[in-house]
């Protein structure tokens, strides 16, 4: 019953929880930055018109999008040691998995963003003598990013929630830290409740922020 809950365990467990939260955030931020860069390259590859490179990018994106993330986490965790010859640890494995996995999702967003730029702009840039990379770097991508920034943020918020899945390989993220602390102090219920509140607070404020920005940007357009 509620009366038997003892939340005095929270201050004791706080350092461990913060460490877990830090890893969750670190994983989110690294996977976001890496994912957006890789995703943009994948999107450019798909739109480049090249048969081989475009096809390869499409296969990669479709494959990543059709495999459950949980399976992907296991794949990388068990396979990287085979490729490199030595285990690299749960945390690094998680970072690699999330970056490569999220790249597929970010690439679809970036593709939509790039396609939202009128074709005439590309032609105009090429006509005044810009190279392909200059056209992309100075004309297309800055606008594509700006058009898609909120969708990218929404994807990042999904990414943050998904980081809890690294539980499967025993990396100590926020959820795992809560479990460990709960076991250590024999207060699993309280720890789970507390961490749910943290997750909720972060995700809720992020989604509120996206909603607020959506309204502001809608007026400017």
């Amino acid at each position: 019953m509620l009366g038997t809950l003892d939340f005095s365990v929270i201050p004791l467990a706080m350092p461990a929880i913060l460490k877990g939260l830090w890893f969750s955030l670190e994983l989110t931020v690294i996977a976001m930055i890496g994912g957006v860069i890789l995703g943009t390259l994948l999107a450019l590859a798909r739109l480049s018109g090249g048969k081989f490179i475009g096809g390869a990018a499409k296969v990669y994106v479709d494959l990543m999008r059709s495999i459950p993330l949980l399976m992907m986490i296991l794949w990388f965790f068990f396979l990287i040691p085979f490729v490199t010859g030595q285990p690299i640890g749960q945390n690094k494995s998680a970072i690699i998995t999330f970056t490569l996995f999220q790249a597929a999702f970010y690439s679809e967003i970036m593709r939509a963003g790039i396609q939202s730029i009128p074709r005439g702009q590309v032609n105009a840039a090429l006509a005044i003598g810009m190279t392909y990379w200059q056209t992309m770097g100075y004309v297309v991508l800055p606008q594509a990013f700006r058009n898609m920034v909120l969708v990218l943020l929404t994807q990042t918020f999904i990414l943050f929630q998904d980081t809890s899945l690294v539980y499967a390989i025993g990396a100590t993220d926020l959820l795992k830290a809560a479990e460990n602390a709960g076991m250590l102090y024999g207060r699993t219920v309280e720890m789970y409740l507390f961490v749910s509140v943290i997750y909720f607070a972060i995700c809720f404020s992020l989604s509120m922020f996206v909603k607020y920005m959506n309204k502001r940007i809608a007026i400017i357009r």
Binding site: M1, Q161, S164, E179, Y192, L193
Partner: peptide, 24 residues
């Protein structure tokens, strides 16, 4: 908002470990 802002795995643990403790 409630069911969207907490990760699925966390929600699963809430139902499995926490909810039974809060019942009569």
């Amino acid at each position: 908002e409630f069911f969207r802002n907490v990760p699925l795995l966390m929600q699963l643990f809430l139902w499995f470990f926490v909810v039974p403790e809060l019942l009569p």
